[in-house]
């Protein structure tokens, strides 16, 4: 499991989640995003195209990050969910809280 952060030319931070986002690594993701927020970034895309599974702690950290980013006038978007992950967001109704796009490129274009 690994998290990658890249800032595109328009200043949007794209976070890649490789493997899984679960109780054991969610704090690492949270800290990386909060550090970028502290450094002035306001637009974020989390790309799940290389993610196998997400547990409820992972979902919870996304909710928490979204709130913190919104409080700073920014926005968090999600992208690249496979069919199972999309279903997970729908059954928890978190699809109503987030802007979700098919790919990270689509999320970037929509900012």
């Amino acid at each position: 499991m690994r998290f990658t952060l890249k800032k595109d030319k328009s200043g949007v931070v794209v976070v890649g989640v490789e493997g899984q986002l679960i109780v054991g690594n969610r704090q690492e993701l949270k800290q990386k995003v909060l550090d970028a927020l502290e450094d002035g970034s306001r637009k974020f895309v989390i790309d799940f195209s290389k993610t196998g599974y997400i547990d409820s702690s992972g979902l919870g950290v996304l909710v928490s990050l979204s709130k913190k980013i919104r409080e700073q006038g920014g926005e968090l978007r999600l992208a690249g969910l496979n069919a199972d992950l999309q279903t997970l967001f729908e059954l928890t109704k978190l699809d109503t809280l987030f802007s979700i796009t098919r790919t990270a490129e689509e999320a970037l274009a929509a900012f």
Binding site: S56, S57, L59, G60, S64, K67, L91, T92, K93, L97
Partner: peptide, 21 residues
């Protein structure tokens, strides 16, 4: 119920709900 409007933005409380589904 983690999907009720008052709980939707809570960070915790989805575990059993997810397992059951």
């Amino acid at each position: 119920d983690p999907t009720s409007p008052e709980n939707l933005e809570r960070e915790f409380g989805r575990g059993l709900f997810v397992i059951r589904h």
